[in-house]
Simulated assay, not measured.
Amino acid sequence: MDLGGGMFLKGVSNNVEVGFLTLLESLNYCQVGQYLKCPKWPIWVVGSESHYTVLFSLDTNVQNKNELEERESQIRKAFDAQDQSGGGGFITVEGFHQVLRETNIKLPREKLEHLSSTGYIVWSEFWQVILDLDKSLGGLKDSSGLMGKKVFDLYHFNGIAKSVLNGSQVNSGVGSPLQRPRLTKLRVSVPPRWTPEEFMADVTTSSASSRTESFGKDPEISKPEPSQHAPLVDCVRTRWPRAICSWSGDPPSIV
């Protein structure tokens, strides 16, 4: 990104041992590159407005991608290579045709004309088309319903001592606060890459199917996961965009 005055902002150019996530990306102030989001080891420094904490996993497989995640990364990398807007998320028609060639995407004529009608292509609009485009044409729509779901654990450590009493924040003048750092275990579920309409259609179909057929389905896919929210979840979603997080006790703190 050209900041003017001979100053340029660039990401790291190689794989790194430890990664980085930041709340500022969820607020659209910056964008962390893939090398920092996908480090060699599942350890991330998490930046907030005030200080840094640590997020990690004991299982290196959380970094593994399934077939569709690999495909998404390939398409996004090709798109970003043509993005001359400094991360604005749009490219020229000429660059768009280059992306289609590199990723072997065969768009129907009407969709191609629609996306190109304004003279530039926006990533969000292109991505919606890809989600609805059959895999045989280079898209991510999979009628088999085998789009993988991930479930794994993450741990968050905040080394700054907080004033707490029995696991809850203490109001001034009430009780004797215990000063301690905090380690929180998060259960993370990353749903399949379905649109909401496809997900609801699958749930309806599953509930109407016979008992024998239902035995062959993954029960976790046919019901929503309980979800909790904290600023840390926004950071996690910059790495796993559809992540649903839950934990026991107080919300993890990044401040």
Rank of each mutant, 00 (worst) to 15 (best):
Y155Q: 14
Q84Y: 10
D234R: 14
K65P: 13
F157Q: 03
L115M: 04
E213F: 12
F152C: 03
C38M: 08
V255A: 11
V255W: 03
S143E: 09
L133C: 06
L154K: 05
S48H: 03
R239T: 01
T238A: 04
Y155T: 08
P177A: 01
G216H: 10
Q128A: 01
R180S: 11
E69D: 03
V32G: 07
T53A: 02
A230S: 15
D202T: 13
S206W: 13
R180H: 09
S189D: 00
R187D: 05
F215N: 03
W123N: 04
H156I: 13
H229E: 08
S124K: 11
E220L: 15
G89P: 08
V170R: 06
E94A: 15
L112V: 02
R211N: 07
V54F: 13
G86C: 02
P177Q: 01
R101T: 09
Q82S: 06
V54N: 03
H97Q: 07
V164I: 04
C235N: 03
G33L: 11
Q169M: 07
F90Q: 09
V54M: 14
Q31H: 13
G11C: 03
I244N: 11
W127C: 05
G5W: 12
S163M: 11
N158S: 09
L115K: 06
K40F: 06
W44G: 07
R101N: 10
K185D: 00
L133P: 09
G95L: 08
S136F: 08
N66K: 10
M7F: 06
G86T: 01
P181G: 00
V32F: 10
M147K: 07
D134Q: 07
I254T: 11
K106Q: 11
W194Y: 02
Y155N: 13
A201C: 07
K217N: 11
V129N: 04
E197D: 05
G5F: 12
V164C: 05
W44M: 07
F215Q: 02
G33W: 08
T22W: 08
S209G: 12
P39L: 08
P108S: 05
K111F: 11
E197S: 02
K77I: 04
L154H: 05
P251F: 10
G47A: 13
K106M: 10
R76M: 00
S176H: 07
